[in-house]
Design a protein around this nucleic acid. Structure first.
Length: 294
DNA sequence: AAATGGTACAACCGCATCTTC
DNA sequence: AGAAGATGCGGTTGTACCATT
């Protein structure tokens, strides 16, 4: 008697998400918050399994995501963290606000691995390649010996970790679980005096509902026959910035929201806390997010 | 211009872990 | 305590895009 599959696979859609599905998912989550991924697809009218919805949201649709290639600093941080944590991508991602584990994993596999190899560093051990190769050889010869314990592995990685070397006396105090993630409801906080505190927990089903009500109102002004760009997931690898959708893709939407008569309908921008608009380090460019999502 | 190969990234799969009853 | 369900995580795959031949 095995466990039931996470969802009824029959009749469920797989593969790339369409703009329409994205819209449904975003609308639902902004209305109801993130709750119960299993039931979400049904409630949102999506023919997807909950898992797929969660991934789409966390890796692509979340408003607090940074897009674009990792900066040099971020890349170095990934390398340092990888030296300490190994392939614990979610832990690594928790140190890089706006970055997802999937994104970091992909970047590691496609860019950093090669880079390190070019530099003569083994991306697995973070040791000089020659040494690592020797070790591989030894490992083959002594393959009967048991695997080193997890702590030992970490120690080995740390040995060649510049960050750890610099902060040697801080290693023990360096908690990887202490960096908070920005939640959507934390971003879409209305500037208007709020009756309820914005602190509290992140587990509510309706946490973002009120915060985004204005935003959702604005959704109603979305052109019914608006044509979502089919290549909205296309990345511009020639520039440093990836994109979800080009600003030009939204000319009709842009026209709509910038209509002089309806200038106050611009999606909830006024209600966004100014630090979020002005502070790029928050990883949220509200303007672009609005356009990207819609 | 077409074919081919390489690269990058979104999405899926299966297992692990956590939560609830 | 342990079974079942829900969620999270890491590895892998599929495919679109780009460069080269």
């Amino acid at each position: 008697m095995g466990r039931k599959p996470c969802c009824e696979k029959v009749g469920l859609k797989k593969g790339p998400w369409t703009a329409e599905e994205d819209k449904k998912l975003v609308t639902f989550i902004l209305t109801n918050g993130q709750c119960c991924w299993r039931t979400l697809p049904k409630l949102a009218g999506l023919l997807r399994c909950g898992k797929s919805c969660r991934l789409r949201w966390t890796n692509y649709l979340r408003p607090d995501l940074k897009r674009g290639l990792l900066s040099e600093d971020e890349e170095q941080m990934v390398i340092d963290l990888h030296a300490q944590l190994g392939n614990r991508w979610s832990k690594i991602a928790s140190h890089l606000p706006g970055r997802t584990d999937n994104e970091i994993k992909n970047h590691w596999n496609t860019h950093i691995k090669k880079k390190l190899r070019k530099m003569g560093i083994d991306p697995l051990t973070h040791k000089p390649l020659s040494t690592a190769e020797e070790q591989q050889e030894k490992k083959k010869q002594v393959s009967k010996e048991p695997e080193p314990k997890e702590e030992d592995k970490t120690m080995t990685r740390t040995l060649f970790d510049p960050m750890a070397m610099m902060n040697n006396d801080n290693i023990d105090g360096f908690s990887i679980d202490e960096v908070p993630l920005i939640e959507p409801y934390e971003i879409l906080v209305p500037a208007a005096p709020s009756t309820s505190s914005s602190s509290s927990s992140s587990s509510s089903c309706s946490s973002s509902a009120t915060n985004s009500s204005k935003f959702l109102e604005d959704l109603h002004y979305f052109p019914v026959d608006f044509e979502w760009p089919s290549d909205h997931t296309t990345t511009d690898t020639d520039s440093n910035n990836l994109r979800l959708w080009n600003i030009d893709d939204f000319s009709s939407w842009d026209l709509l929201i910038n209509n002089d008569d309806d200038s106050d309908r611009e999606p909830a921008l006024h209600s966004l806390p100014s630090p979020l608009i002005q502070n790029p380090t928050m990883g949220v460019d509200y303007d672009s997010w609005t356009y990207e999502l819609l």
